[in-house]
Design a protein around this nucleic acid. Sequence first.
DNA 1: CAGCGATGT
Length: 949
Amino acid sequence: MLSTPRPQAAPSLLFDDGLTRFSKSKPAESTTLGEPPKKSNRQLKAEAKKRAWEERIAKREAERTRKAEAGDNEEAAFLEKKRKLAEQRKLMGSGSPEKNEKQEQQHKKQKKRKEVPEEHQRKRQKTAGELPLLNGFFPTSVQSPKQKPKNVTQETPQKLEPKFTPSQSDPIHPKQRSSALLSQRQSLPIWAHQSALRQCLIDRDVLVMVGATGSGKSTQLPQFMLNEPWMARRTVPGIDGKVGGCIAITQPRRVAATNLARRVATEAGVKLGEEVGYSVRFDAKAGPKTKIKFLTDGMLLQEMLRDPLLRKYSCIVVDEAHERTVDTDLVMGFLRRLVYGERKGSLKVVVMSATMEVEGMSKFMEENNGQDLDVAAEGEDAAEEGGDIEMKEALAAAVEEALAKEDEEAKEKEEETHPESRKEKRRKKKKKKQSQIDMLLAPRSATPEPVSPVVAEETKPQDDGPESMALYGSIALFQVPGRQFPVDVYHAPEPVTDYVDSALRTIFQIHYSEPLPGDILVFLTGQEEIDSLQKLIEEYAKDLDKTVPRILVLPLYAALPPKEQQRVFLPAPTPNTRKIILSTNIAETSVTVSGVRHVIDTGKAKIKQFRPNLGLDSLLVSEISQSSALQRTGRAGREAPGKCYRLYTEESFKALAQATVPEILRADLAQTILRLKARGCDDIVSFPFLSPPPRNALLAALEQLLGLAALDDTGALTQLGKDMSLLPLLPPQARVLLAAKNAEVVEETIDVISALSGTDSIFVFTTDEEQREAAMEKQKEFLRQEGDHIMLLEIVRAYAAVRPGERRQWCKDHFINPRTMANIWDVRKQLRVLMDVSSSAPEDDEEEEGSESVEVVSPDTAQAVLKCFLTGYYRNTAKLDGRTGGYVTVVGAGNDVVIHPGSSLTGKKREAVVFQELVWTTRPYARWCSAVQMDWIADAAPGVLKRSL
DNA sequence: CAGCGATGT
């Protein structure tokens, strides 16, 4: 058994033993379409490689034993640990005596259950209604899969390194590096297809690539392409200057971009920032020599502001396209245009996805697919909530006109080409779109209606067979297998009413029946749920039988202080301890925890949904999609065969939506549209959206921008809008900042906006009563009667006044998350540069001892700042309703609004408030509130609205 | 009277 993850091992080494074992069950060779027939040779090589690996591992084992015998304590401890684990496995693996004991344990636990502290009972009842006591732990009701274990191939590959590991240094010794890395690289599935892939890219300009975890696609493909003839920098007719020479690989997340760059630089044996580099916000290591650049999608969009043709690049690789973030979707839309437009013949586009569901993407990337003619799907125009009707009507008319025009053009084109198939295609597309819209518009509740029953991913043929390449119209489609261990999937035999309770039972069942090593990863919806389950587990773990391993419960969510997050990646304190990680869906994509072999999936997640007609977000517990479920399942099979326990029935799984609704269909589109316009895309209706947003969402966004004076009546970008688009902020925030420039409170406003945009949780949040009270007490010193905005200003000011060396302690003292504060500081620094604030105070320099003087914000300044906020947030205002004592929105239909309990104004009664965000969770909560006056609102509101106030 | 899924410029 080599599968114990070694503490602090280089992440890439985790594959060592996986490799050998996997290749045993999988033939090293397979047929590939369009690949030169050199198979036998390659096969031999593969076998030799395999043997080499096995030998290496055997050698290492021998080496360990030798070292241990020679008195190397570390190695001896390691071997001892392994031996113990093996024993343990033997001990727990089978036999009926244990079974009886197990049952006894269960009864004990059950009895104990009834004595669960009242507090917990209450909490869970709140979320789950009744609390059924099942007979025994969940296992009695966990079904064995009817078939053999299924291979799970859905994965995203580049998150091998834990997100929060700050290791900047390469953990591999340079001496080992070249040989180890080369053989590692060559053993990656993609390596066998190098020549075929290269040919693909010579033949076609667009390649869609499917590759699951561990295929090596993100790291290897750029290296394959580097010396291709089409990479050469050259002159192209119709474009000024030379074109090409670089490869860009876009990622949805910063960590992924930086980590991949680091790895590729290591593999290529170059210094990071020279031939291989990266570029993310606040951090870039790239220069004139850089040929391969990893960047975030958002960063590429930013580069498009300066050069819409992306002349620097010969190839853009869009990685993780299946995640369908707004930015990825936008990048794909722009690239589609470029590759068949201005950059035709001089740009290669590769779209990489981890899921098989690439048909839509492939069609989208095809030339002449009608996408450019596509109109925004008809959204259901529900009754709009009052407001500025004139504005809305004008906009609606404009959009309608554009739509009609597009429709006509589309029709003409249709008839030009194959009329039959075009129409059919179109109809299908419409239908699909409609269903997306239905889904979007369907009322969301805690248990939403399943959209349309679809065939479970798992029942489809898996990607076990030959890797394949297909030419598909103007694009090439390529599949590379991943490297993933099989995961047994278990479903609940009947619907689960309380998934927290069910998770608890399943955890202990696994703990009692499964040998170590094998940590458990539980997917839950939020912090509160995680905290309460943690308490429950710890309660039960107190009287664990001595024969079973210890338990270590670790929460994992984004708002957790970094130190706490790090604990997830540390090895358990003793070898005889099982880690139980309770995570939000952060562990689904962003963070990879090693050592996990058991996944418990509640099938739920909190999903944000923007409601254009109401102009507010909902953050509700919703069912995940099949692809999310598969992603979660895959987390059990990264290092060894694993097991996944789904706390819902197989039927429920089948009824889940196949894929998560793309973010662009769920989000507030104001910023998206502003960015489109700023990148020269005036006619948003004709932009090739992979998933065209519903019309009412587009309208709401246009209306918002019009209200912020970012657009004029014709829908064209104003100078103000242009300025706004240059700021890395939401449109209302950008508007506020530009207003502040005129009002000469720009420094103060930057402080507030940085604090708001840095995160939504500046304070450390604890459920612990005592700690919370202490925190509240400490935070009192920042409280201002004006409300939250000025309080944030006071906090930022106070922080600025602290000497850099003492800031960490200061954060701790004030229960402020230091990572959040660091982020706020980065934003503040950037905004100060962008807004041309002379850095008179040198507090930004860490070396400088100087610090800003602490100066309490004067009421006049506070008022000026708040008035600026109203220019951007005049719609986010509520006035006190004299009769009910509650607040109702000023703009619109006068809907009820409740001040968020986290606000300093909660429970206070003011004439009116401005708030940053309205989120519907259990009630319509207004977050980040400050007191304002009605006449300020009237002053700040745009013309049409002003009249109605 | 009572709460914050995850990203990004």
